[in-house]
Simulated scan of single mutants.
Amino acid sequence: MTWTSFHRRGEILRDAIASANRRRDGLLPLDVPGVHETFPDELSLLGALQLRWHTRLAGRIERELMLQPLDLESAVVAAWQATADELPGVLAIVDRQRATPATPEIAVAMEKSAAKEHILLAMMAGRVSVPDAAAARVGAAIEEQARATYVGAPAPEEPEARTLLGRLKAALAA
């Protein structure tokens, strides 16, 4: 991969993430210009989105642990929720593909990524020390706790809604 194609791939991935975060419908943003040329199939796009989610989550956990080092589990929960606020569309895609994978290959990839994410959550919360199936179960419980107490960020307003005409339309519709 050349330096130019590397940067182009990053731009298209950012556009895809922005589109997913606006829509929040859980569908892969295959309609974003350049996606089909950059990502050969759904699995490669999903993999890039999953990697972005995972790296953002890991970084958030590190930051939260610096802020509240005595309550590890609360820090991990707060980090998961902050990541969900930053990447709500990506989370919706990940959730949808975990629940109803588009292909058998995606099902296998999502199962592995979920297990790895759960192990990360459990280990960073200080609840386990060995990355095994028990750690994945503990991490899944931590994720459930994060979801149960999560109050999602509101969807961004459409540009038209911020204009006078958009506000008038909204007032008339109500």
Rank of each mutant, 00 (worst) to 15 (best):
R127A: 12
A109C: 10
S44Q: 07
L46F: 10
A48L: 08
K112Y: 10
L51R: 14
V128P: 00
V32H: 02
E160C: 07
A82D: 15
R162I: 06
V128E: 15
E144H: 04
A99R: 14
R98Y: 06
A18S: 13
G89C: 07
A48R: 14
N21F: 06
V94Q: 01
Q68N: 15
Q81A: 11
T2Y: 10
A78Y: 02
L91D: 09
L164H: 05
L87H: 03
T55E: 11
V130E: 15
M123I: 11
D95S: 14
T55P: 00
V130K: 12
P154F: 06
G47Y: 01
Q68I: 07
E157K: 08
L70T: 11
T4N: 13
L45E: 06
G59W: 05
R24N: 05
A20P: 05
A141C: 02
D95G: 08
M110Q: 10
L164T: 08
R98L: 12
R60F: 06
L70V: 07
K112A: 14
E157D: 13
L120E: 07
E117F: 01
D71S: 09
E117Y: 00
L49H: 05
A78C: 07
T2L: 09
G26E: 06
D41R: 01
W80C: 05
R137K: 05
L168Q: 09
D85M: 11
A155Q: 12
R96T: 12
P156T: 14
R162S: 09
A173C: 01
R96Y: 02
R137E: 12
V90Y: 08
V77A: 04
P159A: 01
D15P: 00
A82C: 04
G47P: 01
L28I: 11
M123K: 12
A173T: 05
S113F: 04
P156Y: 01
H7P: 00
V32M: 03
A84L: 10
A58I: 05
D132W: 00
P88Q: 13
V90M: 07
V108M: 07
R14K: 08
A136G: 01
A102F: 01
F39P: 01
